[in-house]
Amino acid sequence: MELTIALGIGVLFGSGVWLVLRPRSFQVLTGLLLMSYAVNLFIFVMGGLWVDKPPLTLAEDVDPAAYTDPLPQALVLTAIVIGFATTALYLVLMIGSRGVTGTDHVDGQEPDQ
């Protein structure tokens, strides 16, 4: 399981980095999204990988080892929301830039041929 998740995160992040380095703004945006997915998974995994363990309980006198760490889950939730909002903002700017400059190149102009 560890290997699968590690590979998954790696592939997502790697694809994201490649896309961010591309010249078209839509590719950059997609790259940022992929990278943020990878990071969210990464945070989630940092709490340790557990199968079939609930994150919270109200009962006292319990063995903490039987429960998974709830904090990374809370962090992921926050990170998703923030990442989503800032990426949406970038999308708006991208559309604005397309409208004003007439090109979707990240520099706002086509490179000289």
């Binding site: 970038y90 830039s97 520099d107 706002g108």
Partner: peptide
């Protein structure tokens, strides 16, 4: 806009 694209 150009500067903002890169900055963001």
């Amino acid at each position: 806009i150009r500067a903002g694209m890169q900055f963001i």
